[in-house]
């Protein structure tokens, strides 16, 4: 649910990074946090387990700049990817404006990608949000046992969708995905 605040001349969008466990969702947010200037970012809040796996969510507010006198702000969230946290994942998705689905390109994660994508669409249907903009980042393209892009696209039925090839750990396509989803969510206002 975008928030249009005429008193502060601000528009805020909620963007959620979704995907299976260890696919690189938090890595995307960490890269954004490290890359963007100090003055435009808020507190990076992370609720993680002792082994630094996301337990609830990560949260990063970002101020992009001003358009026609309105400040454009993004609230970036990640969800915990592990099967165990299915309900937590659903709760973070509430009132989302746009999603970056981070898939793991490794062949042995094939099933996790598909299951997680199905889980996302089910949650969106439950919240009656079928037309939410979604872009897809096929991450970890630098690891040895990856699936070819075409196969991954077929597997996840992504033909004709916005797909980016990523290596989030070194920033490849991180900002492009952020820009892509921002463009999509503002078009819905």
């Amino acid at each position: 649910m975008s928030l249009i605040d005429f008193s502060k001349s601000e528009i805020t969008f909620k963007v959620v990074y979704y995907g299976p466990a260890m696919s690189g969702k938090t890595t995307n947010l960490s890269w954004i946090f490290r890359t963007i200037p100090e003055k435009v970012k808020g507190q990076f809040t992370s609720i993680a387990t002792e082994t630094e796996r996301t337990l609830f969510f990560d949260f990063l507010p970002v101020e992009l700049g001003t358009v026609k006198g309105f400040k454009i702000r993004l609230s970036l969230y990640t969800v915990p990817g592990q099967e165990l946290y299915k309900l937590t994942r659903k709760s973070v998705l509430k009132s989302v404006d746009g999603i970056v689905f981070v898939a793991d390109s490794n062949r042995d994660r094939r099933e996790d990608n598909v299951k997680n994508l199905e889980d996302m669409f089910k949650n969106l249907a439950d919240y009656e949000l079928p037309d939410i903009p979604i872009i897809y980042q096929l991450n970890k393209r630098d690891t040895p046992a990856i699936m070819p892009v075409g196969e991954l696209i077929d597997d996840l039925q992504l033909k004709g969708k916005h797909v980016y090839l990523g290596i989030a750990s070194s920033g490849v396509s991180v900002m492009e995905c952020l820009k892509g989803i921002t463009r999509e969510v503002v078009s819905k206002i």
Binding site: M1, T45, F59, S95
Partner: peptide, 25 residues
């Protein structure tokens, strides 16, 4: 959805934004 709408008190805006995200969560 965790967005701050209004705040009053000593809490800074940055902290109130984080509190809002966590409270809604």
């Amino acid at each position: 959805s965790g967005e701050l709408l209004a705040k009053s008190g000593m809490v800074t805006r940055d902290s109130a934004i984080a509190v809002s995200a966590l409270a809604a969560g």
